[in-house]
Amino acid sequence: MEGLKKLFGYFLLVVFFQLTSGCASRGDVVLHGFAFNFPVDSPDAVLLDYRYGDSKNPAARNAPALRDRGKSDQQSTTSGDMLRGDDLYVKWRLKDTGEVFEDTVDLKARLPKNIEECRIYFLVRGPQLHVYLITPQLRAKDEPRNGPAGWSYRHVLTIYPDVVK
C-alpha cells in the first residue's frame, strides 16, 4: 500500500510539471487578429509573400505551395488565440513598373504590451509598407481617421512606418 501511495505521489508530481510547463511553453499566446486586403487597400500592387511571426496559423503566413510559385493570396483574415508575432515580413510587386519590394518590421519594439482583441493589419503604398494596430475601441468623433478605410470607425494606431510628430 505504501508503494502505491508513493507511486501516486510521483504521478501527481509528473502531471503538475506537465501542466505548468505546458502553460509556460505556450509562449506569448494572445487573442488577436491578423489581416490584409490588397484588392481594396493596395490595388496598385500584387502581394508575393508574407509571414506574421512564428504563428502556425495558416492565414498568418503564405502557403508554401503558393510561395514556391511566387504567388500569394491577396487577402486574408484570421483571429483567435495565436502567438504574438515578433516580426512581419511582406514582399510585393508594383503592377505598373514590375518593381519588387520586401520589408521586415520588428514588431517586438513597436507593438504595445497589450494587443488583446486587436488586429495587426498591413497594406502598401508604392514602395512603402504600412502596418497598423486596429484596436477594439471605437474612434472618437474628434479623432482623425487613420489606417485602412474599412476600419475608420475604430481607433487605429500606426505601427510602421514611424510617424514624425
Rank of each mutant, 00 (worst) to 15 (best):
L48I: 15
D73Q: 15
C23V: 14
F17T: 11
V100H: 09
T135E: 08
F38W: 10
F122G: 01
V131R: 00
S25Q: 10
C23E: 15
K6H: 06
W151F: 09
Y160E: 00
N146W: 08
A24V: 15
G22I: 01
V131K: 00
T104F: 03
D68E: 13
T20V: 06
G9A: 12
G3K: 07
D106K: 01
T135P: 12
G27N: 05
Q74K: 06
Y160C: 00
L111V: 03
L111Q: 02
P136M: 03
L13I: 07
G85V: 06
A24E: 13
S152W: 15
L4H: 07
Y160H: 13
Y132T: 00
F34W: 06
L13M: 13
A63R: 13
D49V: 11
T20F: 04
A63T: 04
R145V: 14
G126Y: 05
V90W: 04
P64F: 12
D96A: 12
C118T: 09
R110H: 12
F101S: 03
D44S: 10
G126W: 03
H130R: 08
A140F: 08
V29Q: 14
P148M: 01
K95G: 07
Y121S: 03
K6D: 14
L157E: 06
K113R: 14
G80Y: 03
F34N: 04
K113A: 12
F38R: 00
K165S: 11
R119Q: 12
H32G: 06
L133P: 06
P58W: 13
P112M: 01
E102R: 07
R154E: 08
Y160F: 13
D81L: 15
F36E: 02
G98S: 05
P64V: 00
A149Q: 13
V105I: 11
G33N: 06
G9R: 03
G3C: 08
A45H: 04
Y121C: 12
R67V: 12
Y52W: 13
Q137C: 06
D49M: 09
P43F: 11
L123C: 04
R93W: 11
E117N: 14
L66T: 04
R61V: 05
H155Y: 09
F101T: 00
T78M: 13
N57W: 10
P161T: 02
Q137F: 12
V46R: 11
T135G: 08
Q18I: 09
L66F: 10
D28A: 05
Q74S: 03
L19M: 13
A35T: 10
D86I: 01
K108C: 04
S55A: 15
F11V: 14
G150W: 06
V164C: 05
R145E: 09
